[in-house]
């Protein structure tokens, strides 16, 4: 475990905590995409099936369980919480799941390291994670007043991806035979998805203005 990896995981964790706190404190999920959260739930379920088959470390297991539990909590609140669910922007959050899920599934069947159920699902989760933020970004673009916490949530998620790239560079230089091309390419694609958002986030922060994304 290197510092970039740990910082990346902590940033990922922090992003989810920010979202949970925001929803809990304001009793609102305005500007939050349920589609993105549900895609993340699919990502975590498919990737963490190895909780049952492969023990890596206590840290690894605990983090996986936290990511699963927190994502399902967010989904539960957005769908069923008496107060929060009323604030969900259903009409704006219109991105279609199948546009992301189907291509990723097909790609995972074709491009994988082993054609087994576990491996294909794992690879599928890698591809799906790369694009799962898209419904959230589209929703942000449609939201006129992006509140700070939603903006920070997406910024932290993007930072987590950037830190993972540094982690891979570090591992590549220090560990012999450490290669994972599918993960690297998906991770780079995933980080590129955030670049546009980063640009406007930093600009609004420097100018002390409220964040808004051009349509």
């Amino acid at each position: 475990m290197n510092i970039f990896r740990l910082a990346g995981d902590m940033t990922h964790l922090l992003s989810i905590i920010v979202l949970l706190l925001k929803m809990n404190a304001t009793r609102s999920c305005r500007g939050v995409s349920l589609k993105t959260q549900e895609l993340y739930a699919v990502v975590f379920v498919c990737r963490y099936l190895d909780l049952f088959t492969n023990f890596i470390s206590l840290y690894n297991t605990v983090m996986k369980l936290i990511f699963l539990a927190s994502t399902f909590t967010i989904i539960y609140w957005m769908r069923f919480h008496k107060v929060i669910r009323v604030t969900y922007d259903r009409e704006q959050d219109t991105f279609r799941y199948q546009f992301l899920v189907l291509p990723c599934l097909v790609l995972a069947m074709v491009l994988n390291s082993e054609f087994t159920v576990m491996e294909v699902l794992w690879t599928f989760s890698i591809y799906l994670e790369a694009v799962a933020i898209l419904p959230q970004l589209v929703l942000l673009q449609r939201t006129n007043n992006i509140d700070n916490l939603t903006g920070n949530y997406v910024f932290l998620l993007g930072s987590y991806r950037a830190l993972y790239i540094l982690n891979w560079i570090y591992r590549f230089m220090t560990e012999p035979n450490y290669r994972q091309y599918l993960v690297w390419i998906s991770g780079i694609v995933q980080t590129i998805v955030y670049i546009d958002f980063f640009y406007y986030y930093i600009k609004s922060w420097r100018n002390n203005e409220k964040l808004s994304l051009p349509a």
């Binding site: 995981d9 190895d50 599918l182």
Partner: peptide, 10 residues
């Protein structure tokens, strides 16, 4: 694609 991936990342 033949690669054995270390699945120790989250």
């Amino acid at each position: 694609v033949a690669e054995k991936i270390a699945k120790d990342e989250l």
